[in-house]
Design a protein around this nucleic acid. Structure first.
Lengths: 147, 147
DNA sequence: AAACACCTTTACGTTTACGTAAACTTTCTC
DNA sequence: GAGAAAGTTTACGTAAACGTAAAGGTGTTT
């Protein structure tokens, strides 16, 4: 009995901080497939998971089309078709490579931010020194004030 | 003498596999500032670094505007202005948080890919078993063939 | 039953990040 | 010095991912 709850469009909208317009757009692009009660959309927990995946994909720089590809692939891959399964494996490997690239990019960015921050702090320290020279205050007082 | 070399637009285009159109667009958006010899653009090694950063930013899901913000920030931050330096530090922290989020997203994605791959391999193994039952070949031959 | 919240479709508008074509100038290469 | 190669500007076109009305349908609360 895996969470059989359903959701309205505004529930999902609020939970994930995304406009209803976007959610409808995702349905239009066939990334979500809510059922209907009359006209009203009813989202399953599967839809909810998918929405979460869509948003994560966006944060990772994936286009909706890319995300849809993955959804489709997963949906269409028959558990009993060898060819499809192999294709799935190669695509998974491609995605892995992409993630590796992203991890490298992030690591690089972090290193550069480290040096940038170091320079900032150095410059600040330099400024502090000059201040003290101009107004030679009591060191102990300052130390105490910062705690 | 930090690498005083210069580059033509096509050189950069080839090196980073990006169209000249894009490079000119980046200049238009003031992310690059090549000098000119007559009409022709001459890119410095600083421009080259920036281009690299632009592309990395894109891979990380940053818009050109976001990247430009960072460039501007860095350019404009005077080494002697305390306020600017502090602002820089807070922005650096924000970016760090963003990178953390991305790392989490990637880790999640990797886990899911692991389980997906496992299921694929399981299904494939299942198929292999059935094949063998239908055509009960010699196991040793197969093993040998795979080496 | 009037008002209000929430849902719907339809459809035109907007921003970003380029693509593509035209028409022209400058720079190599033979 | 003629032609090809590489560069330029100008400008219209396009795909993605929504924003933003407009106009209206359900339902429930007072």
């Amino acid at each position: 009995m895996a969470s059989k709850k359903t959701y309205s469009i505004s529930e999902l909208s609020k939970e994930f901080d995304v406009t209803t317009r976007s959610i409808r757009f995702y349905e239009d692009q066939e990334l979500l497939r809510p059922s209907r009660r009359g006209q009203t959309r009813i989202f399953s927990s599967k839809d909810r998971v998918r929405l979460k995946l869509i948003l994560r994909g966006k944060r990772m720089g994936f286009s909706l089309a890319e995300t849809k590809e993955l959804f489709d692939l997963w949906d269409e891959t028959p558990i009993g078709n060898e060819k499809q399964l192999l294709k799935m494996l190669t695509i998974l490997n491609n995605k892995r490579a992409q993630l590796e690239q992203q991890k490298n990019d992030i690591a690089q960015a972090e290193m550069e931010m480290d040096t940038a921050e170091a320079r900032c702090r150095e410059a600040l320290a330099e400024l502090q020194k000059k201040k003290k020279q101009q107004a030679p205050a009591n060191d102990d007082e300052k130390q105490a004030a910062e705690n």
